[in-house]
Amino acid sequence: MAMSDGIEAAEAAAPAARRTRVSGMDRALQILDHLYETGAPAGGYAIAKAIGAPLSTTYVVIDELVERSLLVRRPDGNVWLGPRLYHYGLVYARSLDFLSEASHVMHALCRTVEESVQICGRDNDNMVVLSMADGPGHFRVSSEVGTRVPLNWTASGRLLVGHLPEAERIAIFRRSAKASPTRKAQTDPKTLAELAAKALEERLSIQISETDFMVSCVASPICDASGACVATISIVLPEHKVVANRAFYADAVRAASETIERNLGWRDHGG
């Protein structure tokens, strides 16, 4: 009877222990997500306030993450993402056949058009730059790998949701659309949903000065075998070049996206 009672007590305690571990893991992920989303180092107090966690708990979790090199503590006391995450990311990137193939085509397109080229994906309600090749000229874009912006600000952002049902597209833009720095980005959810579907159908999306003044983006979708847009390839260049030679850049970026799809087996070789 005593042994039975002991087993029952242990079994009752196990779920509580698991919950504690899960809770600690959740707090760690909340801290990492907060730093990732804000893109800047922060102190324990600011992090605790942002994620709604007790200050004492936040400090304990931060210390554990620092000990494991998942975070680094800076001279000013703030913490930032650590080198262990970088090494994990490198291994993950090497395992992505898609990104490897897309990067080859991205660099080839960069040489052809002599402008900066990006591979972009979707991160919930944002577009994120996955890979980038800088153009050879003096023109430089403000975004870099890891940059996240609202979907409605970019040509790529519209394409990334273009395959979704209309109601879902509208819902996404209703909660995520924001005014851009130039105030030129469309914010009406229904209009954005229509533009997204049309852009995917035409395999081309162009934005001019919607995010940055005098900067344009010409993008084409990279669609998997089911037709879902999993990423985009885009040319980022000065506005006047798109106006002067729209067809050249449109044809080049479409051809690049089709090459990626074909090489990955997502498109018929004759298509």
Rank of each mutant, 00 (worst) to 15 (best):
R19L: 08
W80F: 14
A48L: 11
E67F: 01
R73E: 15
V66Q: 00
A48V: 10
G24K: 05
G77E: 11
E37I: 03
G43K: 10
G39C: 04
V60D: 10
G43I: 10
R18D: 04
Y45A: 15
L35A: 03
L35F: 04
V22P: 01
L65M: 08
Y36V: 07
E37H: 05
D63I: 01
P54M: 02
L65W: 00
I62T: 01
P75S: 14
K49F: 13
S56A: 12
Y45D: 14
L29C: 09
S56F: 13
P41K: 05
G43T: 14
S69A: 14
T57R: 14
L65C: 03
T20E: 08
L32R: 06
A28L: 01
S56H: 11
G77L: 09
S56V: 12
I31V: 06
I31A: 00
E64F: 01
Y36R: 13
P54C: 03
R74G: 11
W80N: 10
S69C: 07
A53P: 02
A46R: 14
L55K: 13
D76N: 15
S23L: 10
A46G: 14
A48Q: 12
P75W: 08
N78M: 14
L81T: 01
R21M: 09
E64H: 08
Q30L: 09
W80R: 08
G77C: 07
R19N: 06
W80C: 09
R21A: 07
T38R: 12
I31G: 00
L32T: 06
I31E: 00
T38S: 10
E37F: 02
L32V: 10
S23D: 14
R18H: 05
S56P: 02
G24H: 11
A42K: 03
Y45N: 14
T58P: 05
Y45F: 15
I51M: 02
V22W: 12
D76K: 05
A50Y: 04
S23H: 09
I31Y: 00
R74E: 15
E37A: 06
H34I: 03
G39T: 05
T38M: 07
Y59M: 04
L32W: 03
I47R: 02
R18W: 05
A48K: 09
N78K: 15
V60R: 13
R68W: 01
R74S: 14
G44S: 13
G77W: 05
H34A: 11
L29H: 12
I51V: 12
I51S: 01
V66M: 00
V22H: 12
V72P: 01
S56E: 12
S23K: 11
Y59E: 08
Y45I: 15
P54H: 02
G44H: 03
R68M: 02
A53D: 11
A50R: 07
H34M: 07
K49S: 15
L71W: 00
G39I: 03
